[in-house]
Simulated assay, not measured.
Amino acid sequence: MTEPHNHPGNPPDRPHPGRWTDLERPPLGLRALRRGLILPGGLWTSLDVVEATGSTNTDLAARAAGGAAEGAVLVAEEQTAGRGRLDRRWSAPARSGIFFSVLLRPGPGVPVERLGWLPLLTGVAVATGLARAAGVDTALKWPNDLLVTVDGEERKAGGILAERAGADAVVVGVGLNVSLRADELPVPTAGSLALANAVSLDRDTLLRAVLRSLERWYGQWREAGGDPAASRLQEAYTAGCATLGRRVRAELPGGRELVGEAVAVDGDGRLVVATDDGGLHPVSAGDIVHVRGA
């Protein structure tokens, strides 16, 4: 990981000539973010903003290996090699979105088999935070996509990637398109908060809201020993999941496919697909396609 040039490598709060010339996309206000998020007894223990990096998940995983404390947050103004599931790339213009990773160490009180709920938990937290701060209804596509409605159509505006980082740590990364215009979208089916008519595109406000929401949901879930029912996480995810009740095609590892109706998310966070022959199939990994017209 390359060390940024000014300790701890964060862009200044005030714009300066050169890089920060797009007045519609100002840099994040680091000092204000730290004041609002790093609080005594709170989850967040450090917050750094770098001008650009390949992947905040990769960088934070390296910090985790070096013993970084739980609650470390790493934000990038620009991410040049961000990754989604299946090593898909995620990139966007500088300061056009929110790209960050958090380091979580759930501890022995959470069984390892429940760690699969962390990307779903993050989705619920992001959707909850954006509803409050941006006035946007964000739906969740299992397992890790964030959807907004643009001109009556569902569009992917963000994604989540959770990765183990050693024996006891998980790094969860979030990428969210905030101010992307139609001509900047990586693919026509993508979306952004701007295109979804968000009431606020202030990234400081949005990032604070998302991280506070994530702190609340993670705290409830960990207090419940990772139990998705007792923490009400399963209920919240089910309520916000756009995949449920839809006809889907699950593209499974090994080139297999499964077509049917997505009927539930089970206690292990798996998507349960009911096929036309009456079978129920829990899917733990795979690409889910919402079949149009169903």
Rank of each mutant, 00 (worst) to 15 (best):
G66S: 13
L176K: 02
R34Y: 07
L233N: 03
N144W: 06
D202K: 07
L23G: 14
I38M: 14
A64M: 08
E113L: 08
D277G: 11
G36Q: 09
L201E: 11
A165E: 03
S179L: 06
E154F: 05
L30Y: 00
A52C: 15
I160D: 00
N10A: 14
D168H: 15
G67S: 13
E154D: 07
S46H: 12
R216A: 07
R203A: 04
S179M: 13
A157T: 10
A134W: 03
W221L: 09
A133D: 00
R14G: 03
V136N: 06
T58A: 15
G278D: 07
T53P: 01
G166V: 12
A133V: 12
A139R: 14
L180D: 07
A72F: 09
N57G: 08
G9A: 06
E3C: 15
L185M: 13
G66N: 13
H7C: 11
A81Q: 09
E223R: 11
L23S: 15
L104A: 12
T205H: 11
I160S: 00
P188Y: 10
A230S: 12
G279D: 10
E163Q: 10
V210M: 05
G18I: 01
T45D: 10
T275F: 06
D266Q: 04
V172N: 02
P111H: 14
T45A: 13
L201K: 07
T58C: 10
P186T: 13
A236I: 01
N10D: 13
M1A: 03
P17Q: 15
G158P: 13
L271Q: 00
R19T: 05
T21S: 15
N6F: 11
E70C: 14
A139P: 11
Q79A: 10
R222P: 09
L161I: 08
R14V: 14
P27A: 02
L121A: 01
C241W: 08
G286I: 05
G191S: 09
H290S: 12
G84N: 09
V174S: 01
G191A: 06
T243G: 03
S46R: 06
A52G: 10
V283K: 00
P186D: 02
A64S: 10
L233C: 03
G9E: 07
H5W: 12
G18K: 07
E24Y: 09
V263Y: 07
G67H: 15
E154W: 05
R208C: 12
D287F: 15
A250C: 15
A125T: 15
F100Q: 03
V210A: 10
